[in-house]
């Protein structure tokens, strides 16, 4: 894939896994950021091609990061353990935890080709 992907994920093991997957896909990983503030900094500072955002970051929602990315025209996908019950916009792809490589890959491909 060879793209730069921002990871915002507060769970280290999950972040690690995701990092491995992305590396396997041939992507460059930005982050992972585990807190809202860190995520916001990276989202504003880095020129990512796309981002994978955990919805819940230690009790805070990652919506502000999504706002920044949207403003910058950077596509993103949400990852969540809340399943379909997570309250997010319908135009954003959602991968439900636990996810497998195929799910992450197809979600990423969708946003990157748009």
């Amino acid at each position: 894939m060879g793209r730069k992907i921002l990871i915002v994920e507060d769970e280290p093991v999950v972040a690690m896994c995701l990092e491995d997957m992305l590396l396997d896909f041939g992507c460059t990983v930005i982050g992972p950021a585990s807190r809202l503030a860190d995520g916001l900094v990276l989202a504003e500072a880095e020129d990512a091609d796309a981002a994978i955002l955990d919805v819940n970051l230690g009790g805070e929602r990652s919506d502000p990061i999504a706002g920044v990315l949207r403003a910058r025209g950077i596509p993103y996908i949400f990852a969540t353990g809340y399943g379909a019950a997570a309250n997010i916009g319908s135009d954003v792809p959602l991968v439900c935890k636990p996810y497998c490589e195929e799910q992450v890959r197809s979600a990423l491909e969708r946003v990157l080709t748009l």
């Binding site: 353990g81 019950a85 439900c96 636990p98 996810y99």
Partner: peptide, 20 residues
């Protein structure tokens, strides 16, 4: 919802550990 989220997160962690 919260319980579910935690279970899912736990499953995600289990998956991550397994993957590693």
């Amino acid at each position: 919802d919260e319980l579910n989220h935690r279970v899912k997160n736990t499953l995600a962690i289990v998956q991550g550990i397994a993957q590693q």
